[in-house]
Design a protein around this nucleic acid. Structure first.
Lengths: 337, 337
DNA sequence: AAAAGCTGTCGAAGCGCTTCGACAACCTAT
DNA sequence: ATAGGTTGTCGAAGCGCTTCGACAGCTTTT
């Protein structure tokens, strides 16, 4: 294994000079720099991460806590994780993958051991038990998702309340009056996941403002669960002509069931999705949808974190404005045509 | 920040004693141990990861390289990643998440810097450019997936050849003679991804042995692509009664299209999936399938790696035997009924 | 021409831990 | 009782790097 000292010797300079060439923290003459860089290349030198971390108290690692459960939005999680990893690399950081399994202990462990310089938390509950720890440490962190109380925290998320409102507005504009929301699995609401509740808030508020009738039903996803849910919705409100779906794995089943029942999309009923673009475009009817900007969220989270680590940046809540893309699944309400 | 020395002082012992209590590498009297553990708890001590790595040349980190692209099997990747992370934790390791982006350089970087003690590579190509590097280092590694030449490597994967054979056998047993395979996206075959080609080998070989006719068509997935692919298959072999699908995002479209064309599943045609159980059970027809044992693969990979790091373990190829679960999408061939 | 300021380099200290050899203190066998 | 083991603890060295202060050799200002 090649060390700093060996590079220094090879280049005929002191170890500290090599270090300064590497970090750029002091000016180095062009000739020396070149000689050192040459030696580094020739010897195939890689700085030792542990030694570096010890001496500088900086690990250059960002911890990413992803949810353990895979009951929702797996592709979105993955996309965020990948965006985090690649963005982090462009800033010279690596990413440590933590699962929610350890819970708050993981935060303690990582903070205490200096394993990571900062952390990103996904799948934040409205009243997340990890939050007090984050507030109590000076280690920078960013949440992807929004807890109930954001004081002293930095958060990045899609503006789900506006998303809900946007979906309602789109359907309202098309003349729909009776709307049903196919939500996430009941468990998601039970554990008070922010995005689900905020979406619902937005949906409810805006539909009330616009004088529409809204029915919300959680749904496990999958064909069978969707069949039950749909039957109950139509039983209760036969005149429902607009659907908002916030559950990837309910999209295709819903479309299939509607087709099967002879309800044409978008002629008889309109469907708006809240899902990644990939799901929307690969569905059997190209879905009008508000996309989940997974990449953007991951990228922003890292950039916020890097800014904090550099002493810039501050505690802010960044809500990404939703964008609704009209595709083939929404059209004028039958009564309005 | 609490250090080893502070704990030692608090407990009235030397630093090395505390270290030995922590590592268990030398015997310590019960009373001393208790005193030290008490101090550790009282002071809230966490060993510094960098210092530990430097002194012991062990980072207790396993690097996991996941593919950058998200054109296939995202949930499977995620499930593997989570299984790797949780299993690693039970053995005292953390997981560093690398994307394929950096390519071979990532291997060099991690190996050279001592950032990780070992690595797990996913999405291995038959002739992967990272393999020479792995062979040339003494850092343990495990591949999830199978390259063309496995000498000097440790691999874990589903036995996709047997999987292909198993699918064919199941359909053969039911009397099907004309089979079509809906494969992964063309790009997957073009970059010679092992599992896709091996599945195909298994399918071809066994169908030939059983005197069946096999048609293989790559498919991008999604409704539109599937529609085109299906039309071409039925055009070429109108008598096709059995389908094998190895593309998650083609499953539901295929079922929808068949239904639409008045072909009943499983009465007229049978469909076998090669996909995670979740996909199989959530489809509109509960799918007979060979499941992808994502968790098992991740777990095995870590356990192999830990064994190697402990000086046990060896270079082996572990092929997990496929298991076919019969559900509602396969039945006797029409002509055979 | 002396004082003051840059620039580029070096030496040394030290980050917090592991680990090796040393060695008291005690316990067995002869 | 003495040699030979054990057991439990300690001190010190050192892992490879960063960083601070020092300073030689210049250049600029007075």
């Amino acid at each position: 294994m090649v060390t700093l000292a060996e590079v220094a010797q090879h280049a005929g300079v002191s170890a500290s000079t090599v270090s300064y060439v590497l970090s750029g923290k002091r000016s180095i003459s062009a000739t020396t720099r070149q000689r050192v860089e040459q030696s580094i290349r020739e010897l195939g030198y890689h700085p030792n991460a542990g030694a570096r971390a010890l001496a500088s108290s900086r690990s250059n690692i960002i911890a990413l806590m992803i949810p353990l459960r895979t009951d929702m939005y797996v592709p979105v999680m993955m996309e965020i994780a990948i965006a985090v990893a690649t963005t982090a690399r462009t800033h010279g950081y690596d990413v440590l993958l933590l699962t929610g399994e350890e819970g708050p202990d993981a935060v303690r462990r990582v903070t205490g051991s200096g394993l990571a310089d900062a952390m990103i938390l996904m799948d934040v509950q409205l009243d997340d038990e990890r939050l007090p720890l984050l507030r109590g440490t000076d280690q920078p962190s960013v949440l992807i998702g929004l807890p109930a109380d954001t004081t002293g925290l930095t958060c990045v998320d899609l503006d789900f309340k506006a998303t809900g409102a946007l979906c309602v507005e789109h359907l309202a504009m098309l003349g729909h009056r009776d709307i049903a929301v196919i939500g996430e699995a009941p468990a998601v609401y039970e554990r008070h996941t922010g995005f689900a509740e905020r979406t619902l808030d937005g949906l409810r508020l805006r539909s009330q403002e616009l004088g529409m009738r809204l029915l919300h039903r959680p749904c496990e996803g999958g064909y069978d669960a969707m069949a039950v849910t749909l039957a109950r919705i139509l039983d209760e409100r036969a005149g429902t002509t607009g659907f908002v779906v916030q559950n990837e794995s309910a999209v295709e089943p819903l479309l299939a069931l509607l087709r099967q029942q002879g309800r044409a999309v978008p002629e008889d009923v309109s469907v708006v999705g809240i899902c990644p673009d990939q799901v929307a475009t690969q569905a059997s009817v190209r879905l009008t949808s508000v996309s989940i900007p997974a990449q953007e969220m991951g990228r922003h989270a890292v950039e916020q974190l890097v800014a904090k680590l550099d002493g810039r940046g501050s505690d802010e809540v960044l809500l990404i404005a939703p964008e609704l893309t009209v595709r083939a699944s929404t059209g004028p309400a039958p009564s309005a045509s």
